[in-house]
């Protein structure tokens, strides 16, 4: 068997375990719109209770809990972060930079225990104080089926420049 044929061979996973690409894309684009519109309360509802939101520093890190991250949020920290961003008392987020983001280069793969892994590229443009910045990122989602549709059981946003100096960020990636 040639190498090419090997790579084309489908993985042996039950079809219903994996969220189809179109559904995953629709979910991620909807999330992207929520974040650009800063509809953060609705964003909180997209999560499972145990899901962790991570913005790592080191690009090859795998054990995020044992490393210093830019953000490492469980449900409690996510709720506190959203409260802070929407409070009106944080000068870096009242107002924050405006953002527009697109996601693409989706790759869907089965994960363990019914989780669907979606890897994608995110390009975000932010604007504040006469300055426009572009931030590229690799994003890995852990998506699960729920009664209400799809939920995030994890999201890791590895910024292209995560291990270099960033700036005060008053929004969510």
């Amino acid at each position: 068997m040639s190498t090419l044929e090997q790579t084309r061979e489908p993985k042996m996973t039950e079809p219903h375990d994996v969220i189809p690409l179109a559904d995953a894309c629709a979910f991620i684009w909807r999330e992207a719109e929520m974040l650009d519109q800063q509809d953060y309360k609705a964003w909180l509802d997209l999560w499972t209770e145990k899901g962790i939101y991570v913005i790592p520093i080191e690009r090859d890190e795998t054990d995020y809990a044992s490393a210093l991250n830019i953000a490492y949020d469980d449900a409690g920290m996510r709720a506190a972060r959203v409260k802070r961003l929407k409070s009106g008392f944080s000068m870096s987020s009242a107002p924050s930079a405006r953002t527009v983001r697109t996601t693409s280069r989706f790759v869907v793969e089965p994960g363990e225990d019914g989780v669907t892994i979606v890897r994608c590229a995110q390009m975000l443009v932010e604007f504040k104080f006469e300055r426009t910045r572009v931030v590229g990122a690799d994003v890995v989602y852990r998506l699960v089926r729920t009664e209400g549709g799809i939920a995030m059981d994890g999201k890791v946003v590895t910024l292209l420049n995560s291990d270099e100096p960033l700036w005060g960020v008053g929004y969510l990636f």
Binding site: I70, R81, S92, G168, V169, G170
Partner: peptide
């Protein structure tokens, strides 16, 4: 840090 609950407001100030 860049997304802490303190530093971004310091940096903005």
């Amino acid at each position: 840090g860049p997304m802490g609950f303190g530093s971004p407001d310091d940096a903005e100030g």
